[in-house]
Design a protein around this nucleic acid. Structure first.
Lengths: 210, 210, 210, 210
DNA sequence: TCGTAAACGAGACGGTACGTCACGTCTTTAG
DNA sequence: CTAAAGACGTGACGTACCGTCTCGTTTACGA
């Protein structure tokens, strides 16, 4: 993998795919080993044996390169369990998400990417397109199926439910005032499904005040 | 040429408070005008007419300096309405928070600070201590009063409620896949209080599955 | 978008002469407009709509290309007046040369070419072959005719006379400590013909010491 | 010379003189070893263990740095023999000049500096100030003394005589159509002093045509 | 006449150098 | 004695040009 099996020729053009592959591999290595700050055009170019100009030609910013490297070199497990029991499915999903975010390398990487995205519009766009967007869409689809089954209220804005659940996890990741644990994930799902209000006896069907 | 006719302040020692004040003012100016990325030790020192060494002496990182500058030079409205009606109070609070985050200058600044904090532990600590910590504590206290009034369930982890509400807003600020509006804030509060589950007729008191 | 309505000749082979012509024209344009430094293979190729490989195939260096472009696209006035009066002819010639060197565009171009030639042997050779060599030969021929008429000393090394005259002009062009004017040209010819030594009265025929 | 005797400390500021000295030494090494083209800010900074910013702060261009390095690290023999016999003194001086220009390293260096000066005004100025200017002034002074002694014509423009002599040498250096030898130097002086015109018997005092 | 080889345009590639900005460390100098 | 001033080494930025090389296209020649 690190050995170059082909007899490396001179300085001329190489197949684009080969170069991209090498660059992304190098960027992913730096990203996982030293974090987002280490993913600079200079260092990636040096590590990949590529030219800086090549990187500038294909990625609009170092952050965007880091993002693509991460998305490419991380298994993209997008599956969402769908057993027909929303609470169980959601709990499993959020626990898995928390596990991902608290992994030694993944957590800081995701946090770092989101961090850099605040001042790097290109990275922000890449993150939405390749990461948060698809995940949000998948969650929405699951919620819609649950609503069709009658598990969720009809008047609910499902998109907000996404923010309540995933946003809460990101909150604890990015602003770590409280720990991010699987217990948190479980309780979070219950909170979101059941609501925070106390239900008084003799209150048969407490519709939202709207 | 060699004479500077202006009332040159010279290079000797100046009162610490005077220096700190000037530095923070300069940093705040840069922060609001050009964003977090512009708050570098070099530029702040130049703008404040101070020495870089002085800055290094008092702030552990440029991010920490930016944070302190922001906290110092922004009105810190920590008041939380408490009329006895939790839904109304909370809605007002979240609407105000969303308004703050969508202000032209404040939103990007907050986002930028959180962004930099992901790779700047000093800034992260400062942000928790001076900003997110107090706000979380205030919210918790309000929730506890509401629970004492019987408005909230006894078995609720109130801290998670904070993540659900504020985290959802931060989510839309930091990962802008969906717009951050006051309507969102209103619906968010309802979601959190009432829960997402559909309530079937004849289901008098739907306790959480626990 | 994908259709090019213009009679696009495509990218295939074109007649060599046509390509060379276009390249030289583009190079001359860059040379006169922005100086020798602007004549790079990259910019000429872009301006001429040619491929860099084509340029590399025909010119050994950017300097050589610039030289050929200049020689091709500048009127080559090689005429040397020959009225039988050497002083008058030479004065006219040197005045014309100074005028050429002090023209807005020509002077810097010639100076730039000589400058680049110091580190570009290909350009140096091209300059000698196409420019300085013919001019030196022409001057020599004129001097030889004058010597045959008895105007110049028999023991004179005529080649050195060329260096004295043209070299002095190039000196003021390339190392501009003193201005390059037509008055200079006139006095220069007198100096060269009459010598610098004072002639004492009663010194009827001061032969050179040699 | 290449060993660093002092225990090199961290990254902080070093005495300016020490830095300048090291930079000039490194630049001179590159200049003599590989020519003017090798004197780039990047390579000098690397060779001297200095920062590029430092070089940019003190030298306006790589050429100016090369020039200063050359002037500093080459013995500056400005003496001009003055025995009272102008022809002898001048011959000695021009032979020495030609020897200098034909030395293995000095000739190409001087030629290269003049070459780069054509597109580097800073270098051009430095060259005039530190090199050609003083030499021209010294030659002028010598000529004036000779004229005071009656050796040179009163109506002579001595500055032009300088161009005739030194310019001829530079001509053969920069546009090498003819060889640059000591014989050339000797004959050049005779040419310049005695003039090129044939003197007919009975032509006692051939005044310049004025 | 019809492939086919040559030459073309386009432009990406690995490099080197450019000139700038910020970092964190250090010396110098003035109050 | 201390603070301001600011130069230092480091390293990243984004760009220009170098000379090499791949690619697809088109012309012109030879079979």
């Amino acid at each position: 993998m690190t050995s170059q099996p082909s007899p490396r020729r001179g300085r001329g053009r190489r197949p684009a795919a080969e170069v991209r592959e090498g660059v992304l591999r190098a960027a992913a290595g730096l990203l996982l080993a030293e974090g987002v700050k280490a993913v600079t055009f200079d260092r990636v170019a040096a590590a990949a044996g590529s030219s800086k100009v090549t990187l500038y030609k294909w990625w609009p910013s170092a952050g965007a390169l880091a993002a693509e490297a991460y998305f490419t070199h991380s298994e993209q497990r997008l599956e969402f369990p769908d057993t027909g029991d929303l609470r169980a499915d959601l709990t499993a999903q959020m626990r898995a998400f928390v596990r991902l975010l608290t992994e030694d390398r993944t957590g800081p990487v995701i946090a770092g990417l989101i961090g850099v995205a605040q001042t790097d519009p290109e990275l922000s766009a890449a993150f939405s397109r390749h990461y948060s967007g698809p995940r949000r869409a998948l969650a929405l689809a699951t919620f819609e199926k649950a609503r069709a089954r009658g598990e969720l209220r009809d008047d609910l804005d499902l998109r907000i439910l996404v923010d309540q659940l995933w946003g809460a996890c990101y909150h604890r990741l990015l602003i770590p005032d409280e720990p991010l644990t699987e217990e948190f994930a479980v309780a979070l799902v219950d909170n979101a499904l059941d609501g925070a209000l106390a239900r008084r006896p003799g209150d048969p069907d407490e519709a939202p005040a709207a």
